[in-house]
Amino acid sequence: MVTVSLKTSIAKLEFGERGRERMEATYLVVMMTLLAGVVISCPPSDRGALLAFKSALTDPYLGIFNTWTGSDCCTGWYGISCDPTEGRVNDIILRGESEHTLFAVAGRTGFMSGSLSPSLCSLDRLTTLIVADWKGISGEIPACITSLPRLRILDLVGNQITGEIPVDIGNLGKLTVLNVADNNITGNIPQSIVSLGNLMHLDLRNNRISGEIPANLGKLSMMSRILLKQNELTGSIPTSITSIYRLADLDLSMNQISGSIPAQLGSMPVLSTLNLDSNQLSGEIPGCLLRSNGLNIMNLSHNALEGYLPDVFSSTTYFSMLDLSFNELKGSIPASLAFARYIGHLDLSNNHLCGEIPVGFPFDHLEASSFSDNDCLCGAPLMRVC
């Protein structure tokens, strides 16, 4: 210790403060050079989990898993990304439809069979899990997937997955995207889903999910898209949904939803697409829906909506598509509809409307099919003279 202190004192006397700083800078450069040569590779536990995941799947055409060789799963393994500092697996991104060279050489989209191994649940640094559009992957979503604390994206669209959405899905507090569309999922929407406070995109389309939509789904205040089309959902539209300020796209079509349409949907500031067609909705169409300045696409067809069409259109009305066909609407076509700023597609067919079809825009560019099968509509473009 005396020798070290003596050498330090001599160094300070000889070189002064500036010399000491140069020594420290040199030491720092040497250490950085040494560290740069250290290669951080995935730990054996992550590699083992991926190999178990691989063993539960069969890829007969593309040979994606042929790249999963060697001891370092962070380098050269197709679809795998790791944290550069820890060397832990962060992302699994395997899409059956891609522009990657593997797909171009094969000249086809992907196909995989097999199931999702629970070994995924040991990848506790996983933030993204995308196993999408493989068409033949079946089995259930591993229940233990809800134990992944950092998972932000869960995308399993376009497979043959069965079973239910894990009941504890609400444990994934950082989840922003939940997409299990185009599968064979059954059961109810778990009540715990309303605990996903960061969820922005919910896509459960084209499954066999039944039961009612959770009444307090409106707690998901970050949501921008709720897509529940073509399931077996029943009950009414929760009015809590209308409190989701950021919601831009709501698709509840092709279910068995009943009751009336919440009038508050017409006051949502960001909502631009509303698809409620092919349900069992009844009651009148709220005037604020047709008066809304934000709604651009609205499909209420194939329901049991009744009453008169609200005469609430104005110069700010802008619909690229407005479909009210196959309902029980009566009365005349509102004269104010002729003052709309723009209506690209309008379908009022298969109702009980009567009276003369207004002239001018938008009626002058619509075909007869937009007004067919009503009780007593007349005028152009129909062949019935008033």
Rank of each mutant, 00 (worst) to 15 (best):
V89Q: 04
T109F: 13
V38E: 07
I92C: 05
S122M: 09
G76M: 04
L34Q: 11
F111Q: 02
L57F: 09
G87S: 09
L35Q: 09
F53L: 13
Y61Q: 10
T109W: 12
L35I: 07
I80Q: 09
N90F: 13
S98K: 06
L51R: 10
P60Q: 00
W68P: 02
G79Y: 11
Y78F: 15
L123K: 01
C121W: 00
V105H: 08
D46T: 06
I64N: 00
R108V: 12
R108A: 11
F111A: 01
E86Y: 14
S81R: 14
A104F: 05
A49P: 03
R47L: 06
L34S: 02
G48F: 00
F53I: 04
I92S: 03
L51V: 12
G107I: 05
E86W: 07
A36C: 01
S81N: 10
V89E: 01
S117N: 14
C74M: 10
G48R: 08
Y61E: 09
S55L: 11
T85G: 03
L34I: 11
G96E: 05
M31E: 14
A25Y: 12
S55D: 15
I93T: 14
T127L: 03
D59Y: 07
V29K: 13
S115K: 04
G63T: 02
G96L: 04
T101L: 14
S45A: 10
S45F: 03
T128L: 14
G107W: 06
G114R: 00
T127D: 08
C73N: 08
L94G: 06
R88I: 01
Y78R: 11
T85C: 04
S41W: 00
G37Q: 11
G79L: 05
S122W: 02
L62H: 13
T75V: 15
S115T: 14
S55T: 07
G107A: 11
N66H: 14
V39K: 14
V29P: 01
H100Q: 13
D124K: 15
G114H: 03
T109M: 08
T67I: 11
T127A: 13
L50W: 12
S71N: 13
L57M: 06
F53A: 05
A56F: 06
V39Q: 15
T67D: 07
G70S: 08
R47H: 09
T26F: 13
L102E: 09
A36Q: 12
R125E: 11
V38Y: 04
I80N: 03
L34C: 07
V39L: 10
G63S: 06
E97C: 00
L57T: 02
E97L: 09
V105L: 15
F53T: 04
L102T: 14
A36M: 12
A52P: 02
L102F: 15
D46W: 03
I64F: 12
I80G: 08
A106C: 05
Y78T: 11
L102I: 15
S122P: 02
L116G: 02
L35G: 00
D59F: 04
M112Y: 03
G110N: 13
T67G: 05
F53P: 00
G114W: 01
G87W: 03
G70L: 05
A36G: 13
M31N: 11
F103T: 10
C121S: 04
F65H: 01
T58C: 01
H100D: 15
D72S: 03
L116I: 15
G79K: 06
